[in-house]
Design a protein around this nucleic acid. Structure first.
Lengths: 351, 351
DNA sequence: CTGAAAGCGCTTACAG
DNA sequence: CTGAAAGCGCTTACAG
């Protein structure tokens, strides 16, 4: 591969001059610039980003550690992160933690070793020593979706509390009283918050969330299946299951179908995170939709602000309920709240 | 951040010795080793991968350029690629082409600039000059899923012809005669091959594939929607639509539902690529399943073989038909072919 | 077993 | 406007 020396030789100038034209430095004569450009084109020269990074101590790269690539929510998040980063002149390297803390640490370490300029993390746990050290060492970092309490890092996330309240109102209106939840790991904020939001909303209707109705999942499909089976085996099974993410909802659907039961007749189902497939499942699934793309973009902006010396902003965006048929036929409501107006509109899907 | 000099100073040895213990070089005294390890632990030292790469001309990194991260097929592929790469001591950087050739080139260029050790590509088009140059320049490369004819690069992919033949047999048995396809871009191999396999299978039943029944999609959902609407507007609409990937099948479902029609009564549907959601759609979708994980792993092995001086092997694995209900009720067959036995078993799903 | 030194491909003050 | 030189953090022949 041609190096800057080859270009300099071909253009009859010094490597310093080549470097200057490559970096758009103003003080280069038009003639030198032309000769260099010619040599670059002729040799098909491409600057070595590794060498440049070593010298400048910048990689123009962001690390993104997501909890699970197989989760469409994170996949959409990753896509918007890459898009915004590209627009701001950064590339992104994705690490998939697969909901496993050790794998998360592996990727954080790898990313740090590569000297990425900043790190976007959706933590799989309560914060490993490695991650805490990285924060203390001053690594620019921003949490997306999930975060670690007590750590001085900006957080970009959705607040689902109002939407969960809307969901419980919807369920109550349909006559459901025994409501259960498939929770994510308690060590994650989204794992515990969604349970708490659910519990608080139930309390408003004088309903309790007994321990037997809190199933411990790990945000992956298999756990949703297992927990749902446990619910169905209860002497008094719940009437509704609220899955704290879309993959556990998939597992719940598997479990219900495997027993030859039907949603919503035998068990109603709702999920956190809305995905395109929920429109076409049997039945279409009532879900809480996050503004995923906007979260990804806001997270990148916050991180780049931090990297470039500006003050990063934490951002909290509202999630919203999308009612479909998986909790029972909704009694038709005359007014339809427009989707973008109120802070937490109950959007009635056309499906 | 502590550098190798700091470690050397703290341990009272030269940087050469530090480097040797870090790299497991045998000729280091036990005492020096212990002192270095101590200093490393105490300083929390981590080698700078950028500097190491510059020096060794190796990044231990693979580039993976996929066509679309939002496609669950590619997401699963990416996951298995990362897993196998990690097992072999490599990390992977993913670039998402989003089915856009310019974006694909952007990522290839970025990856090349970063001096990745090798490139895994699922080409979005027939091969840009940039990609062709990279091959000519000797960049270790392997094509996965899609490939570029006439280019001397190993290919790891699934052969769907037998499964497509099984699909057409299934459709014919159900009485369908007017069969249409939503194709991918003709510039991609999977775009054209799936049409040709479909056409050839139809011919075995004396059926034609008229131009009006070949819709041009781009492997993304919106195109599936648009093409399906076109089919439904035809004076004589098809009885079945075969979507060449799962996202276009999603678009087809959208279009059918938007018109208040039903699958399979008004229009039957089948898809290339099987995904977990197809079990739970209304109705469950008959699909052709690829051995995605195995493809990803085989591709990595081939690429690493090439990188490490061994001779890489092209690999072709069979895809198989999974019958569900989206093409009409199947007449129950007495024997169930075990999924792993025959080269192209027609697996009857339990859903 | 160990260290001094060269060099990977760049960028950037410094001097002219 | 231009070039010689230093230096980023490593690895690795070379000499001892």
């Amino acid at each position: 591969m041609a190096s800057i020396k080859d270009v300099a030789a071909a253009a009859g100038v010094s490597v310093a001059t080549v470097s200057r034209v490559l970096n758009g430095h103003p003080s280069v004569s038009a003639e030198a610039r032309a000769r260099v450009m010619g040599a670059v084109a002729q040799l098909g020269y491409r600057p070595n980003a590794v060498a440049r990074s070593l010298r400048t101590d910048q990689t123009h790269t962001l690390g993104l550690v997501i909890s699970d690539v197989l989760n469409p929510y994170f996949t959409e998040l990753a896509r918007s992160v890459e898009e915004e980063a590209r627009a701001l002149g950064y590339s992104v390297i994705i690490g998939n933690a697969d909901e496993r803390p050790e794998l998360q640490d592996h990727h954080v370490r790898n990313l740090l070793d590569r000297r990425i300029d900043g790190l976007l993390v959706s933590p799989t746990d309560g914060g490993s020593p490695l991650m805490l050290d990285a924060v203390r060492a001053g690594t620019p970092m921003v949490f997306v979706d999930r975060w670690i309490p007590g750590v001085e890092v900006p957080v970009v996330r959705a607040d689902g509390r109002a939407a969960v309240r809307d969901l419980v109102a919807h369920l109550h209106r349909l006559g459901h009283r025994r409501l259960a939840i498939i929770a994510g790991p308690a060590a994650t904020t989204t794992g515990s918050e969604r349970v708490e939001a659910f519990r608080a909303a139930l309390a408003e209707y004088g309903l309790l969330l007994p321990d037997a109705y809190i199933g411990q999942g790990d945000f992956q499909a298999e756990s949703g299946r297992r927990v749902t089976e446990g619910f169905l085996d209860l002497p008094e099974p719940p009437e509704v299951v609220f899955a704290a993410d879309n993959l556990m909802a998939l597992g719940a659907l598997d479990a219900v179908r495997a027993r030859g039961l039907r949603v919503p007749d035998d068990l109603a189902l709702a999920a956190f995170d809305d995905i395109p497939w929920f429109v076409h499942t049997d039945p279409p699934v009532t879900a809480i939709a996050q503004p995923t793309g906007e979260l990804g973009r806001a997270a990148v902006r916050a991180l780049v602000d931090r990297i470039e010396g500006r003050t990063p902003q934490s951002v909290t965006l509202p999630a919203r309920l999308v009612v479909r048929r998986s909790c029972g036929e909704a009694t038709p409501t005359p007014e339809i709240t427009p989707p973008t107006q109120s802070p937490s509109p109950v959007q009635r899907s056309t499906s």
